[in-house]
């Protein structure tokens, strides 16, 4: 059927062309189009929330219905979602239409359940990253050594304990005054050396590599956009007829 398979492709091309042209036509009309599309996409994306919610809840409902391993945990997904939505609808007794109460049950749940869980979940990664670092950062070759040195410099550059380490090093070097003078006067080492080195690593070699990667990503994104506009890339259409 042409309206199922081909009309969406024509629509993609026309809307894409419109979006492309609005960026090159400095006219109030194109600004209006951009503004209208931003508002329209906000509404469409809001409906996409239902698809995401349906997908998640359907998966957990299936797990409960089939009593798969760990199905009881899935009940908690429904409990969390129901309580949060009910609190939002209740909205301190004012109902769903007035603005969300700033110190209501919904905000309380967000502050005392959502935020701590989120922060803790991500902070757990600190432990796993540390354990991965032990395996990754063994200086087996030059590449691993460079990785290790750059990571150590950046990490030390952000903590004040690095200044204490440098001071201890200078204290030890002071046992041999010529060496101390060479390090301090000749090399210009101060207790903020790690901060300066970290800044240099981030601003020079890191920026260079990031810029190269960014240019590559940009070219890839443009080619992908062109593939979509010309109907070569059609995965967004889903399966079926």
């Amino acid at each position: 059927m042409w309206y199922k398979r081909y009309l969406p492709l024509v629509l993609v091309f026309l809307i894409g062309l419109l979006g492309f042209l609005t960026q090159y036509i400095p006219h109030w009309g194109s600004e209006e189009v951009v503004s209208y599309m931003a508002r329209s996409l906000l509404i469409i994306v809001a409906f996409a929330m239902f698809i995401g919610a349906y997908s998640l809840l359907h998966m957990h409902l299936t797990r409960i219905r089939r009593q798969q391993a760990g199905w009881a945990y899935s009940l908690l997904v429904f409990v969390g979602a129901t309580v949060m939505i009910a609190a939002g609808l209740y909205n301190e007794g004012t109902g769903p239409m007035p603005p969300l109460a700033p110190r209501g049950i919904n905000t309380w749940l967000y502050d005392h359940v959502q935020v701590p869980c989120s922060a803790t979940m991500f902070s757990i990664l600190a432990f796993f990253i540390a354990s991965a670092a032990y395996r990754t950062f063994r200086a087996k070759n030059l590449n691993a050594l460079l990785l290790l040195i750059a990571a150590v410099i950046v990490m030390f550059g952000q903590v004040t304990i690095s200044e204490r380490f440098v001071n201890w090093g200078l204290y030890v070097a002071n046992l041999f005054p010529p060496l101390h003078d060479f390090i301090v006067d000749g090399l210009g080492v101060t207790d903020t050396i790690f901060r300066k080195l970290a800044h240099f690593v981030m601003a020079a070699p890191n920026m260079a590599a990031k810029r190269g990667i960014m240019l590559g990503i940009a070219l890839g994104a443009i080619s992908q956009s062109l593939r979509i506009l010309f109907g070569i890339e059609r995965s967004y259409m889903g399966g079926g007829d």
Binding site: V45, G80, A87
Partner: peptide, 25 residues
């Protein structure tokens, strides 16, 4: 972990209602 997922979904739904569906629809 599952409670967190549920609360996150509920919060997202409430925010979608207040920021998009209610004022725009």
């Amino acid at each position: 972990e599952n409670l967190y997922v549920g609360v996150g979904l509920g919060y997202g739904a409430v925010m979608t209602w207040h920021q998009a569906l209610k004022p725009e629809v």
